[in-house]
Structure formats: structure tokens, C-alpha cells
């Protein structure tokens, strides 16, 4: 097991390395540059050249990349030119916020998804199944930024139960309860799509398992229906749901980009949007590397958990 994990982690290195080259090239290829973004309407060729010189962006691309990668290997991710602070400090600040949001959303999505999947499998074609299927399809189909705004209008503007945006109260806030209150709406919005996908998949996984012989045996032994479903069926079905949750982790991270903008959540998605539009290449690099690494890690964790749960995969 340890060797497997080590091998997977080692395989990350070339992936991240290749990714950093691609990001560098793409950022260099898209029109417009950092100096123009900083100068706005004042971007004359002369001013652009002056700013580029001050920022060291007038050097050849290969040289810029080599300088960057050399610094990264020494733990220095450079400075964001649009935020005037080290990339690493900004990325860690922001990624923490995203992890809280995406993590909560993923847990929420898994719980809701599994529960909904089980109920609709057990009550296949019954009323509960139909209602859940309807809600799940609506959840998958609704654009999340729209749903987010809708929730803000209802819970924050109309009923004044929850804050509309941000991560903490702007003055004197900051405790875990405060963050939790701010987390409810964005996490609920973000979990919608993933919950729907997980519900659909756990429904079909459960249906498949429920038809198998060992379930009939369990029922024949006179076990209670609850014991059969949660003790036997779910345990078998969850093995095929776990990798889906791993993949959903990636989608939740991606979806966080919209949700963070709608709810002004200070996460890495909103940071990336701004960094790309201002051509802040080092900030983009830092953000992409962190997001990519965590995506790979999530999938690794999902695979490991699956192996632990399913004795058949273990060798």
C-alpha cells in the first residue's frame, strides 16, 4: 500500500511540471499583458515597456520560465504583480477558504446524495423515488450561480436569516460559528450538482446490489429490512460510489469558481479569475499548481479508501 501511494505521488511530479509549462505558454499566447492590465487606458507602448522592464517581463520567455522554476524549487513562488504580495502567501490564504467551502460541500453532497440514492432505490418507482428523482434532476440542471442568487434573495434579503456574502462578519466576526453561518448558503449551492450525481449513481448501485443473492439470503435469514439495507446492501454499493465522489471533488473545486464569485467567498477560484484577467502569470501558476495537486490527491485518497473498503481490490 505504501509503495502504491509513493508511486502515485511520484507520478504527480511530471504532471505538475508539464502543467506549469502549458500554463506558461498559454498565458504568453493570449493577447494583452500584465503591464497593459495595470496601466488600463494609460497603456502606451512607452509606459508598457517601462512597467515590463521594472517587472522583469521584458526578458525572453524561456529565461522567465527558467528563473521561475529555479525559484520554485527553492520554495519561492515569486510575487504577484497585481496584488503586491508573495504568491505563496496569497495562494495559501485563498486555498484554505476554498478547502473549507469545497470540503463542506462535498461532505454535504455525499450525505445527501447517498441518502437520496438509497431511499429512491429502496422505494423504486414509488412516490419517494419520483420526488427525489425530480429534485435531483432539477439540482443537476440548474445553473449554480443562478441558484446561489436565488438563495441569497430568499435567505439573506427576504428573511434575513443568513448573511448574503463573505466568509466572516466584517467587523468583530471570525469565530467558527460565524464562518459556519456564512458557509451554509454557498456550500448548499455548491453541493447541489454533486449531490444529484451521487444520488443517481448510488441509486443504480443500490438497485444492482439489492437484486443479488446475498441480499435474498440475508432477508431469508430473517434480518430486519434496515439491517439488510444499511448493513449489507449499502456496504457493497458504496464501493462503486466512492470513486465517483473522488471525481466529484474535482468538479466541486471547479464549480467553486462561480460560487466564490457569487458569494464573495475569498477562495482560490475567485483569485484565479482575477489573476487570469490581469495576466498575473505567477499568481496563475501558483494557483494552478495547488489546484492540480489537490485534484490528484483527492483522487488518490478516493482510490485508497475504495481499496480499504473493498477486500477484492486489495492484493
Amino acid at each position: 500500500m505504501t509503495a502504491y501511494i509513493a508511486k502515485r505521488l511520484l507520478a504527480m511530479v511530471p504532471v505538475l511540471f508539464g502543467l506549469s509549462i502549458i500554463v506558461f505558454l498559454v498565458m504568453a499566447l493570449i493577447p494583452g499583458d500584465t503591464a497593459t492590465a495595470i496601466l488600463g487606458a494609460y497603456a502606451t507602448p512607452e509606459n508598457v515597456a517601462r512597467i515590463n522592464r521594472d517587472l522583469g517581463l521584458d526578458k525572453p520567455l524561456v529565461q522567465q520560465y527558467l528563473i521561475w522554476i529555479g525559484n520554485v524549487l527553492q520554495g519561492d513562488f515569486g510575487r504577484s504583480v497585481t496584488l503586491n504580495r508573495p504568491v505563496l502567501a496569497e495562494v495559501t490564504d485563498r486555498f484554505g477558504a476554498t478547502l473549507i467551502l469545497a470540503g463542506t460541500a462535498l461532505v454535504l453532497a455525499s450525505l445527501i446524495g447517498l441518502l437520496a440514492g438509497i431511499v429512491s432505490a429502496v422505494r423504486q418507482f414509488g412516490w419517494a423515488d419520483r420526488i427525489i428523482t425530480f429534485i435531483v434532476l432539477a439540482g443537476i440542471s440548474m445553473p449554480s450561480f443562478w441558484l446561489g442568487l436565488l438563495l441569497i434573495l430568499l435567505f439573506a434579503v427576504e428573511w434575513r436569516l443568513l448573511p448574503a456574502s463573505g466568509m466572516t462578519a466584517v467587523y468583530g466576526g471570525g469565530g467558527p460559528a460565524d464562518v459556519a453561518r456564512h458557509l451554509i448558503l454557498p456550500a448548499a449551492t455548491l453541493s447541489m450538482v454533486a449531490a444529484g450525481v451521487i444520488a443517481r449513481l448510488s441509486r443504480s448501485a443500490m438497485l444492482e446490489v439489492l437484486r443479488q443473492d446475498f441480499i435474498r439470503t440475508a432477508r431469508a435469514k430473517g434480518l430486519s429490512e434496515r439491517r439488510v439495507i444499511y448493513g449489507h446492501a449499502l456496504r457493497a454499493a458504496i464501493v462503486s460510489v466512492i470513486p465517483v465522489i473522488g471525481i466529484q471533488a474535482g468538479f466541486v473545486l471547479g464549480g467553486a469558481v462561480y460560487i466564490e464569485t457569487v458569494f464573495q467567498w475569498p477562495g482560490i477560484g475567485a483569485m484565479m479569475v482575477k489573476a487570469i484577467s490581469t495576466r498575473d502569470i505567477l499568481l496563475v501558476q501558483g494557483g494552478v499548481l495547488v489546484v492540480a495537486a489537490s485534484y490528484v490527491l483527492f483522487n488518490l485518497v478516493a482510490d485508497v479508501v475504495q481499496t480499504l473498503l473493498d477486500p477484492r481490490i486489495r492484493t
Partner: peptide
Amino acid sequence: VAEMMAGG
């Protein structure tokens, strides 16, 4: 706008 209307 929503935050303004919500009183934040």
C-alpha cells in the same frame, strides 16, 4: 445589490 438590501 443583494448585500445592500440585506443590510450588510
